[in-house]
Design a protein around this nucleic acid. Structure first.
Length: 287
DNA sequence: ACTCTTGTTAAAAC
DNA sequence: GGTTTTAACAAGAG
């Protein structure tokens, strides 16, 4: 499940690998993965990616063509796998990558971009929910406008979080998952942030005290920053552009640790359903 | 065979 | 009528 830290890892790596490389060929193996846009190939072929930005879990790629941008979303199982020309040669066209995806293209490859230097970018996505779509500047702007502030951003203050939670009768978890208010948190980091701030994710959002909001503000920020430091979390599907796993997985306090001992108080971590999602928390030290 | 997994959104319910 | 909850999407793991 790629959330903000995982998408940021992909962004940074793509920035190093594909900026200013000319796209000389495109293969779309699953039309839905380009949002059924028939001009995806003709528009993009011959262009260069000039910058790669990210807001929340969305990637925004600029091209050197006027008014031509790409918005990409990995959803649950999307992967961006980069294979250089050198890797192609070294492994005899076998495209060696570390597990879990040894060869490219892969069974789940939906889109392939071929660059002028012989390298390839493979968009692999088992469940076909993710996409890369071409858009105009206006569409980029409206997508950006639909997203709330990022917890790692300077404008994400505890006053902002207070405003977001005020009067909301829904759960803390549902509120934190709402990308229109706060961009970048997903199922994993919401659970982790709630554990760090000792707040139960099924609490009503409007019932949090100012002290608790300040703690939650701090923990949502720190958990994302820590996860970026460790290269993101691989719980099930995420790998970076080299096919490598994230190392924050070992640092998780509650997500996927149901039936195990709380690292803080030793109680047994429980798993319940909140906001329609599997939710992990410590019944003793989270109130 | 049946349940569970999740990011986003549209539809349904409140 | 704005807010909240649920279902759908897809395909695989267990």
């Amino acid at each position: 499940m790629p959330e903000l830290p995982e998408v940021e890892m992909v962004r940074r790596q793509l920035e190093d690998k594909i900026i200013n490389k000319k796209i000389i060929d495109i293969l779309v193996k699953n039309f839905k993965s380009v949002e059924n846009n028939s001009s995806f190939i003709t528009e993009l072929k011959g262009q260069k990616i000039t910058s790669i930005n990210r807001i929340g879990k969305y990637l925004f790629l600029s091209t050197d063509k006027t008014n031509l941008y790409i918005i990409a979303h990995l959803k649950m199982t999307g992967r961006m796998i980069y294979v250089s020309y050198k890797d192609d040669i070294q492994y005899g066209g076998g495209h060696a990558l570390s597990k879990p995806q040894a060869k490219q293209p892969h069974k789940h490859t939906r889109i392939i971009l071929a660059f002028a230097d012989g390298s390839h970018l493979y968009f692999n996505d088992m469940r076909k929910f993710g996409y890369m779509k071409i858009v105009t500047k206006d569409e980029v702007d409206s997508q950006r406008a639909s997203l709330g502030r990022e917890p790692i951003s300077d404008d994400y203050t505890y006053e902002y979080l207070e405003e977001v939670l005020k009067g909301r009768k829904t759960s803390v978890k549902a509120a934190l998952l709402n990308q229109g208010d706060i961009a970048g948190l997903g199922n994993i980091y919401v659970d982790e942030a709630c554990w760090r701030s000792k707040i139960r994710p099924d609490r009503s959002a409007e019932d949090l005290s100012l002290t608790e909001i300040k703690k939650l503000h701090k923990s949502t920020r720190s958990v994302l920053q820590d996860a970026i430091t460790y290269g993101g979390t691989t719980f099930r599907d995420y790998v970076d552009t080299n096919g490598k796993h994230g190392n924050f997985t070992d640092k998780l306090a509650v997500f996927g640790r149901d039936e195990e001992e709380c690292r803080r108080c030793g109680s047994i971590i429980e798993k319940i359903r909140v906001a329609g999602r599997g939710t992990h928390f410590c019944p003793d030290c989270q109130k």
